[in-house]
């Protein structure tokens, strides 16, 4: 297993305009947090999915100069661009084609796709993926997981089509131990009552799928007279953090094409505060995965911490775990 970065982790640095796209590549190389590089098409590229020859040439030049390895291009299934109307399968196929072409033009071996595309759409894109040598990886993250009905649909299609260009991108948010304490602290600081947080966490650790537990929490919180805005914000812990067992990834192992090493923060011992990397990484290593994992810090949603440092810490932890076990 090899390490790398997704520029999504550097969202704050980028959006604040402190670091340009080119600066992010240079920093990633300078800090040794490559060589793997994932980018989000609609984040990094003006005019995406149109990729000019000029942009592609410049990107390849930078990748070579910084000795980075393009690992994944994150593409999107934008079903509802016209509000209130969902794209047809034909439209969705047409929406994906230029994005997959963009991946090929930029030298990415994998296009990260989203479950909203639908198995029929992805099946229809396999010939193009094969022709362009770009693997299509379904990102599986919370609230989905390896055995979620939405993912089972794809597993069934994959089993029928049997193409090496159909794969998975496990995101560790599906297999968390708990909700990141740093996230809960953020809510605390915003004035969300400790009693509401305790109620939410109690239900989070309970039985049932994410949606069922979320509804259970909302009912109880409303009955308890808690503020609607607060209880709704906090309810996001249910779709955002899944509690499936790490071993649930095992059945998908042969088709894993990339990993999103999702993380939020670290405890005093330098271990991820909510996700059991000591259990997860050996599973993939020993399961035969030799591809790349992108360090995906998502704390940028609620924290202005230095993302470059967070990624360095994450990779140091990963190397330590892989060396130890």
């Amino acid at each position: 297993m090899k390490l790398g970065t997704t520029l999504y982790a550097l969202t704050n640095e980028y959006l604040s305009r402190r670091y340009s796209f080119e600066d992010l590549l240079a920093q990633t190389a300078a800090r040794g947090t490559g060589p793997g590089l994932e980018i989000v098409g609609f984040q990094s590229i003006r005019g995406f999915p149109v990729v000019t020859d000029e942009f592609a040439a410049r990107f390849k030049e930078l990748v070579a100069r910084h000795e980075l390895v393009p690992t994944s291009l994150a593409i999107n299934a934008d079903q509802e661009i016209r509000r209130g109307r969902v794209m047809s399968d034909d439209e969705m196929v047409a929406y994906h084609e230029p994005q997959i072409r963009a991946a090929a033009k930029l030298g990415f071996p994998v296009a990260r796709y989203q479950y909203g595309a639908g198995p029929d759409v992805i099946r229809r894109l396999v010939p193009l993926a094969e022709k362009l040598n770009v693997k299509l990886g379904l990102e599986i993250h919370a609230p989905q997981h390896a055995n979620h009905p939405d993912v089972i649909e794809y597993r069934e299609m994959y089993a029928k089509v049997r193409s090496p260009y159909l794969g998975w991108i496990p995101d560790f948010s599906s297999t968390a131990r708990t909700v990141p304490p740093s996230f809960l602290e953020f809510f605390c600081a915003k004035g969300v009552p400790e009693s509401l947080i305790a109620m939410a966490m109690d239900i989070w650790h309970g039985e049932g799928d994410a949606y069922k537990r979320m509804m259970q929490y909302k009912e109880k919180a409303r009955a308890g007279g808690f503020d609607d805005l607060q209880l709704n914000e906090l309810s996001l812990i249910f779709p955002m953090f899944g509690k499936q067992e790490p071993r649930s990834w095992l059945e998908l192992m042969p088709e894993v094409v990339h990993i999103h090493g999702k993380f939020f923060g670290f405890d005093a011992q330098g271990n991820e505060e909510a996700i059991d990397y000591a259990a997860l990484l050996p599973l993939f290593r020993d399961g035969g995965f030799t591809g790349y994992m992108s360090s995906e810090w998502e704390g940028h949603m609620y924290s202005d911490a230095d993302a470059f440092q967070m990624i360095e810490n994450h990779q140091a932890m990963c190397r330590r775990i892989l060396a130890m076990n």
Partner: peptide, 12 residues
């Protein structure tokens, strides 16, 4: 990656 809460409210 999908569920982004109303935390970035100061960024409008």
């Amino acid at each position: 990656m999908d569920y982004i809460p109303a935390m970035q409210t100061s960024r409008v």
